[in-house]
């Protein structure tokens, strides 16, 4: 089954073609990683899929439905949840409250429920609290629930952002460089968490620079270079692909000649 399909997705910024007619199928099962040198267009691709940047051309199909150019909150409501390259936590809230915000799409309490606190709203809040604590435990932050998000160490902020995204029960979870700024041990723990998320039936699409993480975590690797897709396949096959080696080590070959 195909969770996400990109058809000729293109984004131009003035004369620069950041993403150049990328066509891609993301299977519902497993982890797909998008890799590529800096400036290859990975984040622009993510921003187009999640609705933050409108494409210049092409289509985004989510479970067969055209979601091209919809606003981010509508795409999120469809089950596509993303994280950010620079962690975007709600610094003014505790870790627990951050994850609770992630339950927004699956709860319905409005102003009246806030003021009158009818039975269903109290049960809903209790359920939000329970689920948020479960998710904090899932990413290993069970003991930081009451800590302000702003004072968490960087690695834990990354994990908190993932827990918050999971609270929205995504069908497709998009992680933008989740290992950036993590040490080796944290990266291994992250890899483990990503695998477990995929095993629970959530499609994971990630952008990553960290090759060990990609090689141990991804089932499929897509390589972008100068906005174009230059390779796609299993991690081992992609690593051996001459075009990929050229893209990453092009300077070295030029030096040989």
């Amino acid at each position: 089954m195909i969770r996400l399909r990109l058809e000729g997705l293109t984004r131009r910024f003035g004369g620069l073609v950041a993403v150049d007619s990328v066509t891609l199928d993301v299977a519902a099962e497993g982890v797909t990683a998008v890799i590529g040198p800096n400036g290859a267009g990975k984040t622009t691709l993510f921003n187009m899929i999640s609705g933050f940047v409108p494409p210049s051309a092409g289509r985004v199909l989510f479970e067969g439905e055209d979601i091209t150019g919809r606003p981010p909150e509508r795409i999120a409501a469809r089950g596509l949840i993303r994280t950010f390259q620079l962690v975007q936590l709600f610094q003014n809230l505790s870790a627990l409250e951050n994850v609770a915000v992630g339950r927004h799409l699956h709860t319905r309490g409005g102003l009246w429920a806030a003021l009158a606190r009818p039975g269903w709203a109290r049960r809903e809040e209790a359920e939000v609290d329970r689920r948020a604590r479960d998710l904090l435990a899932f990413v290993g932050l069970g003991d930081r629930a009451e800590t302000s998000a702003a004072v968490l160490p960087y690695g834990q902020q990354r994990l908190l952002e993932i827990a918050r995204a999971l609270a929205a029960e995504p069908k497709l979870l998009m992680l933008d460089e989740p290992a950036a700024g993590l040490n080796a041990a944290e990266t291994r723990a992250l890899s483990e968490i990503i695998r477990r998320i995929a095993e629970r039936g959530t499609t994971v699409l990630l952008i990553e620079h960290d090759m060990p993480l990609v090689m141990t975590t991804a089932d499929t690797v897509v390589v972008l270079d100068f906005g174009r897709k230059i390779a796609e396949g299993a991690p081992a096959a992609v690593r051996a692909d001459p075009a990929v080696i050229e893209a990453y080590l092009g300077g070295a070959e030029a030096a040989h000649a």
């Binding site: 709600f90 799409l105 809903e124 929205a168």
Partner: peptide, 25 residues
Amino acid sequence: LIRHSRVGRAMAAIAGSEDAARALG
């Protein structure tokens, strides 16, 4: 009561990061 409710959390989320709030629906 508003602050400690779903509505209040959504407001606080907007204060924290509009992009992240939108990305969560």
